[in-house]
């Protein structure tokens, strides 16, 4: 369990959550997925206040939606990058929006990738598979910053 690479999926739409999980399953990516359903929950996962925190260690990658209840995706990203323990954590923005302003703000705040969720599930599944392969298998994490 301790060596397993986990994914933090920040997504408020249960349908999108189900589709993402299905796509990951179809890609044979077995990594555990922790789901946070708003920005505050996402931050709680990363910076646990108590021993009941579901995360024992930091995830391998965060899939972050932008439009979220309570705290939006940009704000979550800003706080992740502001904390020395998470500032190098790979964050992929996975969203419906392709507005220039959103993309610019995402990269400016330090997102590692920006991926638009396609409507066509085949394309969407393909995107998730590639993301999983890249961030969980190919990509080497930066050396762990000791807590």
């Amino acid at each position: 369990m301790t060596t397993e690479k986990t994914i933090l999926l920040v997504e408020d739409n249960p349908a999108d959550e189900a589709l993402t999980l299905r796509a990951l399953k179809k890609a044979n990516i077995a990594s555990p997925v922790v789901v946070a359903r708003d920005g505050v929950e996402a931050l709680n996962c990363l910076f646990p206040a108590g021993p009941n925190s579901p995360l024992q260690k930091l995830p391998q990658v965060i899939f972050l939606d932008l439009k979220l209840p309570k705290l939006d995706g940009h704000e979550v990203l800003k706080r992740i990058r502001a904390d020395v323990r998470t500032q190098l954590l790979p964050v992929v923005i996975l969203t419906t929006s392709v507005e220039d302003a959103d993309r610019l703000e995402g990269y400016r705040l330090g997102a590692n990738s920006y991926v638009r969720k396609p409507v066509d599930f085949s394309e969407f599944a393909n995107a998730v598979i590639q993301l999983g392969l890249y961030w969980l298998v190919l990509n080497e994490q930066p050396p762990c910053v000791t807590r």
Partner: peptide, 21 residues
């Protein structure tokens, strides 16, 4: 426009995704 872009597409993705499922 932003709402249209974001909010109208999300349900479409569900319709398509679950139809395929």
């Amino acid at each position: 426009s932003y709402s249209v872009a974001h909010d109208l597409r999300a349900p479409l993705r569900s319709i398509d995704g679950f139809s395929l499922a």
